[in-house]
Simulated scan of single mutants.
Amino acid sequence: MTAPTPYLFCAAAPPLHYVAGAIEDAQARGWTVRLGLTPTAAAWLEDHLGGLEALTGNRVRSTYRRPGDASGWPAPDVIHFAPITANSLNAWALGLTPSWPVGVVVQAAGKGTPMVAMPCVNQALAAHPQVDRSVAALRDMGVTVLYGEGGWAPNPSGQGRPTEYPWHLVTDAADRFLPQQ
């Protein structure tokens, strides 16, 4: 049996700097991780992309490919998007495709691909009514959104807690969708 293939998508939020640990956890579960980043996340990790490619054994993607170019990635068994910012969360819920990872999850919803998301927003962003509407819309689409109790609880503005981001919750939730080896 081949290893499960999850896509791990990340937006530019402080826990992004700890994505290698999340990848290692997924690999310890027998997964072959494909890492996709929003363009801003890719810029934040620019000096580490080579190391992340070596860690995953796959090219890290952050941009749309040209028509006719091969993807190079197999279809995902599950997609997990974490950390996901308010910007990417709202775009996804509204069906907008401003970045490659968001475009993939918008289409994946129509394909019935299992998906897990865990926002990383502070209390000021979470206070905007669109965040709750977007979480509800994604849940209505069947996306497992780990937000609030049992997921990410927004922190006060200016008091980031990137080392406290519970990556394991995303991996555990995604694991439920993967074929068992």
Rank of each mutant, 00 (worst) to 15 (best):
A91W: 09
A108Q: 09
P162Y: 10
P6W: 11
T171S: 00
H17K: 01
A109G: 06
D77G: 11
V105T: 15
V105Y: 01
Q181I: 11
Q130M: 14
W44N: 08
A3C: 03
A127T: 00
M141N: 07
R29L: 14
P6V: 10
N58W: 12
T5F: 15
A153L: 15
G95I: 11
P83K: 12
A82I: 12
L16C: 03
M141K: 14
P154F: 15
Y147L: 05
A91E: 05
V102L: 01
W44T: 09
G95V: 06
A91K: 14
P15Q: 07
P129F: 09
V106C: 06
A12D: 12
S88K: 02
A86Q: 11
R176L: 07
W31K: 08
W167G: 00
P15N: 10
P98M: 13
G142L: 11
H17F: 12
L49V: 09
L178I: 03
M115V: 06
A108D: 07
R65V: 09
A136S: 13
L49D: 04
P156K: 11
Q180S: 12
P119E: 06
T40F: 02
G150M: 15
H80L: 14
S157L: 10
W92G: 08
V60M: 06
E149N: 04
N90W: 10
A108T: 10
T2I: 09
A70T: 03
S88G: 15
A42L: 07
V60E: 07
G112K: 05
W31M: 15
R34Q: 07
E46M: 04
P101N: 10
P4Y: 13
W92E: 08
S62F: 08
T56Y: 01
A70V: 00
V116R: 03
T38I: 01
G142S: 10
A3E: 11
Y18E: 00
A153C: 07
A93G: 14
L52D: 03
G112D: 05
Q180N: 10
D47G: 01
D25N: 07
G30T: 13
P114N: 04
W167C: 02
A86P: 05
V102P: 00
K111I: 09
G103K: 03
A109F: 05
A153H: 12
N87P: 02
R133V: 00
A86I: 00
R61P: 00
L35C: 02
N122C: 10
W31R: 12
P154I: 15
T97C: 10
V105M: 08
R176T: 14
A153R: 13
M1P: 03
T171V: 15
R133P: 02
N87K: 08
A42C: 03
W73I: 00
G50Y: 06
H168G: 11
A43F: 06
A41F: 01
I79Y: 11
A28K: 14
G21V: 11
A109V: 14
I23Y: 07
S99E: 14
T56A: 02
P6G: 05
L138R: 03
A91P: 01
A137V: 11
